[in-house]
């Protein structure tokens, strides 16, 4: 008999109504995919995350430190309501006395769209620079939640054929396996035909998993990508790859991730360029 390692999701708790919505999203996600939430209640407005090739200083806005005496109790209540036992992260290492290191040995991390700026800035079309750095550097995918708690009933994966899109597809398979929900795959046909995309799947030996986990593969023929996004179910968890291309290419040709995150308000699960398949 062999046990699987539990998958763990890092959640930075904000002790206000907005933070409650975000924690509820995390708990829903954990319940769906069988992961355990690890909650960090910040005691300082900044902390460091050391990744393989980057160190990210997260400067939290003051709302994360509201009423620390009630934070643990509120978080515990929410977690236990979700039928999960609460586990809190207590930093062991400090780069400076007021600068804790939060380890990055997690399987998922949950972030609002912006973690360092005032809540008023949070909205579609804006992902904060720290969240971007975390997505770029992390081995784990980042769950970027919609502003208000929203249960998801289906899973949509965006697949454009790049190496990062393959990672996102594999992540989709993992989530489908864990949650028991089949996937909808969306592809915007640009320079390749349907057959080319199917060949890509074949070349990567993903045919079997496509048959097993994918409900439908949608091809967008309309040239305007943002218009096509209306077809994505409003209650879907959207999985996509990000930052697979360089800054210059994104600047010249635009980024699909930016278009998606600025157009739809679904929960997003983003796999960055350093994402490695979940154990």
């Amino acid at each position: 008999m062999e046990n699987q390692m539990e998958n763990r999701l890092l959640h930075i708790f904000r002790n206000n109504p907005f933070g409650r919505e975000t924690l509820l999203q995390s708990l829903y996600f954990c319940n769906k995919v069988g992961a355990s939430p690890v909650i960090y209640i910040p005691k300082t407005t900044k902390f460091l995350m050391y990744f393989d090739n980057d160190v990210v200083q997260v400067d939290l806005d003051k709302s994360y430190l509201i009423s620390p005496e009630t934070a643990i109790q509120r978080a515990t209540e929410l977690v236990e309501q979700g039928g999960i036992s609460a586990r809190f992260l207590d930093p062991k290492h400090f780069t400076a006395s007021t600068l804790p290191d939060i380890h990055t040995n997690f399987d998922y991390m949950c972030c609002p769209r912006s973690i360092s700026d005032m809540s008023s800035k949070i909205g579609l079309g804006y992902i904060g620079p720290r969240v971007r750095r975390i997505v770029r550097s992390a081995r784990f995918p980042v769950l970027i939640t919609s502003p208000v708690y929203k249960e998801w009933k289906s899973i949509s994966v965006f697949f454009g054929g790049s190496a990062n899109a393959i990672k996102a597809l594999r992540l989709g398979f993992h989530i489908a396996r864990a949650s028991g929900i089949q996937l909808d795959v969306f592809t915007q046909t640009e320079k390749f035909s349907k057959k080319d995309y199917q060949q890509m799947i074949k070349d990567r030996n993903l045919e079997e998993e496509m048959d097993l986990y994918v409900k439908q593969w949608h091809f967008f023929e309309n040239r305007v990508f943002e218009e096509n996004l209306y077809d994505v179910p409003h209650d879907a968890l959207v999985i996509l790859g990000a930052f697979g291309h360089g800054v210059i290419r994104n600047f010249v040709f635009g980024s699909k991730m930016e278009k998606i995150q600025s157009t739809i308000s679904n929960n997003l699960l983003i796999a960055g360029p350093n994402y490695t398949t979940i154990r």
């Binding site: 900044k46 460091l48 050391y50 090739n53 980057d54 160190v55 200083q57 400067d59 290492h93 780069t95 400076a96 006395s97 007021t98 600068l99």
Partner: peptide, 26 residues
């Protein structure tokens, strides 16, 4: 710049010891 005071050499040695010399750009 959101950094603590101090001269910073222990921070460099800490980073070399524990995190392969990763230091913030700032």
């Amino acid at each position: 710049v959101n950094e603590g005071a101090g001269h910073g050499v222990p921070e460099v040695i800490y980073s070399v010891s524990r995190y392969g010399g990763l230091l913030r750009f700032r």
